[in-house]
Simulated assay, not measured.
Amino acid sequence: MLAGLRIAEPVEPDFRLGITETETLDETPHGSLVFDGDVPEDGSCRMIEDGGTIHLVFPGRQTVAINGGEGSAELRVRPGAKAAWTPSMLVLDAALDAGGQHMLHTAGLTLPDSDAVVLIHAPSGTGKTTTSLALATQGFGLCSDDAMIVNVASGKVVAWGLPRAVKIHQKTAQMIPRVAPCLGQTWDRNGEQPVSLEKLAGIMRVENASARPVAALLHLARSADSQTGLVAMARTDAMVALAVDNVRTGMTGLLPMQKRRLATIAGLVNSVPTFRLEVGARPADAAALIRAALD
């Protein structure tokens, strides 16, 4: 997933990750218990906060210790154990945070004839991928259908897309026949299949991971009357919707990195127009509405 971000010239890193395969895991680190339960895909997990260090323990499999202040993380995994997805994403979050950036659960698309990007937020299952691909068939450029990296530290809001494969659902394929040449015959248990950005680039414009100015934030919702519409959204409502889906709380409240993520969301919402995009039976109709609103 990160191979596309490789750079030619070495630079001094803001963050270092050490990975060790070992039979010995410290599953009882000191600190305050923040979370204890199951996480999607990865199963049983405990999160412990010890000063500036966050520990994640996946019993019998894997541990990770993340210290954002020191810009480092240590991941330890038992031989033969399946690596968990959750700690990898938390490490990536911490590495981004070290550079003043935060990953938000939004899609991102460049406007036709412009380098500016619109961010589309919605909880999983609402239709971000379908809407993103529909817009991409109307001249918009796909940065990401699910994860955008936002930076407000420079005084202007910029964002770039995490370059990972797009998971296309069978229903999305039915609504957007143009993606058919990219699809295989096998669907997973959720009725989805991943499609690489390279394949999608053959039928639509796929943007690279350059940071681009953010033109607007759209909160996606399903239309009640099957008609697609775009209306202004109060900034406070937009911030609440984005924060609920992107800021995690634990038994001890907000962790420092989550507070910084919330500040990034506030900076984003205060800097760009915010809209509610209600998508109906024809998601491609949103293209003209977005262009008209921003023009």
Rank of each mutant, 00 (worst) to 15 (best):
residue 180 A to Y: 04
residue 150 V to F: 02
residue 264 T to A: 14
residue 206 V to S: 14
residue 265 I to M: 10
residue 167 K to C: 13
residue 197 L to P: 07
residue 164 R to Y: 05
residue 245 D to T: 07
residue 165 A to T: 11
residue 254 L to T: 10
residue 180 A to Q: 09
residue 167 K to A: 10
residue 146 D to P: 10
residue 251 M to P: 00
residue 156 K to R: 09
residue 165 A to Y: 07
residue 223 S to N: 02
residue 253 G to L: 03
residue 155 G to N: 00
residue 262 L to P: 06
residue 178 R to S: 12
residue 157 V to E: 01
residue 166 V to G: 13
residue 275 F to W: 13
residue 170 Q to D: 07
residue 148 M to V: 07
residue 184 G to H: 07
residue 199 K to G: 10
residue 229 G to M: 02
residue 266 A to W: 06
residue 151 N to R: 06
residue 153 A to K: 03
residue 268 L to A: 07
residue 144 S to I: 11
residue 241 A to E: 12
residue 169 H to P: 06
residue 271 S to D: 09
residue 186 T to S: 11
residue 234 A to W: 03
residue 155 G to D: 05
residue 266 A to R: 07
residue 208 N to Q: 13
residue 258 Q to G: 14
residue 253 G to C: 09
residue 150 V to L: 01
residue 215 A to C: 00
residue 228 T to I: 06
residue 274 T to K: 00
residue 264 T to V: 15
residue 254 L to M: 14
residue 205 R to A: 13
residue 152 V to M: 04
residue 252 T to V: 11
residue 187 W to Y: 12
residue 167 K to L: 10
residue 217 L to V: 14
residue 217 L to G: 11
residue 243 A to Y: 02
residue 259 K to W: 14
residue 224 A to T: 00
residue 213 P to C: 02
residue 268 L to T: 10
residue 222 R to A: 10
